[in-house]
Amino acid sequence: MEQLQAVVETRSGYRLDPRTKLFLMAVVATAEFLYSHTAFMVAVALIPFVLLLTNRQYKTAIIFFCLFSAGLFVQAIQNSIQFHMVVNMLVVLLVGLVLRLFPAFVMGAYIIKSTTASECITALGRMHIGRQITIPLSVLFRFIPTMQEESAAIKDAMRMREVQFGTKKFWQNPAALIEYRFIPLMISVVKIGDDLSAAALTRGLDNPVRRTNITKVGFTGWDLITVLIAGTALIITYFFSPW
């Protein structure tokens, strides 16, 4: 788990403070839902896109770019074509999902990949957010990939017994899918969670003394530049858009 490494080598070059990342995340999540022109939406989407490039997540960036352009294209031709009602609903929803929600999702992917757990906890601590929030949050992010892995393993095991979506056995008893896929997943996740809390407690999670950290967290010139560029781009496209 790269995200759980305690010691971080001092990386030089472009990197942001976790607080700046969270701020940009909030901006993106809010801005997506303002009514706006295409230029503004593109500006919003560019923020996570450029950040992904700086973090060398080229694959995610390219996928995002393709989906977003496809979404823009469909939206542009949408009003000239009349689809059947159900198809229209699906198309509209997919386009809406891509254009409105994907910037925030991709931003989330960037934040999770580029921030180590200790960086994140230190930064949240500096914002005076108590451990009541930081500990559950870090456990949450630790668990979502684990749940995916476990779920895939259980899916493979259950395929042998034909407990999967779409088989004849499934239609005879759809509720069995919940019982055979979901309950084993919960059991294994609970077991892993118990191990995790034992490990964390032996490492002094309950220690009442303030947590120290060797990770360096602080605002740099990069943060200022990033926020300034993003801010001007958003303001210009919002107020003075040619379209």
């Binding site: 451990r131 009541q132 500990i135 559950p136 949050l137 870090s138 456990v139 949450l140 630790r142 668990f143 996740v189 609970v190 969670g193 995790l196 809390s197 964390a200 407690l201 999670l205 309950d206």
Partner: peptide, 11 residues
């Protein structure tokens, strides 16, 4: 709330 409780909350 102890550490164990908080981990349970997360899980």
């Amino acid at each position: 709330l102890t550490g164990k409780d908080l981990i349970n909350v997360g899980i």
